[in-house]
Amino acid sequence: MNIKGITKWNKMTLKNSYMFRLVMEKNNLCKPLIERVLGIKIKSLSYVEPEKSFEAKLRTKGIRLDLFVIDEDGVAYDIEMQMDNSYKKFLGKRSRYYVSLMDNGALKKDEPYSHLRKSYVIFICTFDPFGKGLAKYTFNAICNEAHSLVLDDGVTRVFINTEGDRHRISRELANLLGYISTGDVTDDYTRQLDEKVKELRNDTGEEVSYMTYMQTIMENRAMAYEEANQETALSMLKDGFPAETIIKYTKLTLEQVTKLAASLHRVH
């Protein structure tokens, strides 16, 4: 199967979110990544789920996280690999929404707020999300009037820039960012990551799964695009636009527009 416009399986690296999820399924590879990014030590991970789905209630927007992790102490981590910089100005609000859905249902009825788990949202970006040249941006809720006062809401958001200045971060994190950026192996952990990536590239079963997954994603996007164009065409038909104008703006065929017009007449 060959799908135009997607990365070939034998060219996949840790930058690709699909490969990232597969590699980080392994606790022994996921745990050191979190420790290097946050500069902390974790006892152990009790739960690791790649592409975790959070379905929101009613008609609100659901999300699918790249990697959802809970450690032995109940701390939750959402880790996202982000290559597309076209949406970087929305990363802050996106992280806010991720936190809200991670917290959704976390407390049982009558359970105190003190039981709400500590959580981290981590975006590993292959671009500079804020244009300051830093390799790591960490955000907590700080009081505008007294910067030393931090709101203890248990939420920390971290944005990693793999192309940023690595002089102000730990050597371990710098090595990790170097591997993500260039594929250079500089320590034992990046060697383990590289070996896992190469192992997966040689797995024909995983290649088939990847191609099937991408085919499904592209078909779903095409279907959503088609449905959106049909909705637009229906609105234009109701407003009296001629068929040629509708075809120009929606890219639908004359046959499709004619069928939509006929469906409107049947309704009325």
Rank of each mutant, 00 (worst) to 15 (best):
L252N: 02
I142Q: 03
C30Q: 09
P32N: 07
A106V: 02
V185Y: 06
L176D: 02
Q256C: 12
L67T: 06
I142V: 12
F54M: 11
R221Q: 15
L237P: 04
H147M: 01
M214D: 03
E163V: 12
H115R: 09
E219Y: 14
I3D: 00
T253A: 11
L234G: 15
M1N: 06
L33C: 12
S209D: 11
E226Q: 08
V155Q: 00
M102C: 01
D84W: 07
L260A: 03
V197C: 07
A261Q: 13
E219M: 13
R36Y: 12
T182F: 02
T126Y: 06
D184E: 14
E199G: 00
V99A: 11
E226N: 11
Y179L: 08
Y113C: 01
N175A: 15
I40D: 06
S148E: 06
N104D: 15
M102V: 09
L264K: 13
L252C: 06
Y179P: 04
N140W: 00
D73V: 04
S114C: 08
M12F: 04
R36K: 15
V121G: 02
A262Q: 15
V267K: 13
S114T: 14
I79S: 08
A262P: 01
L193Y: 03
L58K: 15
L91M: 14
Y225Q: 13
A222N: 10
G74T: 02
G205L: 06
S119I: 00
L45G: 13
R117Y: 05
L67K: 11
I217Q: 14
K11D: 14
F159V: 03
Q82P: 06
H268W: 03
G164V: 04
Y179S: 04
L45C: 15
L134M: 08
Y189V: 07
N144T: 07
I247R: 05
L237N: 12
N104R: 05
D188I: 12
N10E: 14
P32V: 03
M81I: 14
L177I: 02
A141V: 03
D239H: 14
L29N: 12
F20M: 08
T190Y: 02
Y137K: 06
R201A: 01
K52N: 07
K259D: 13
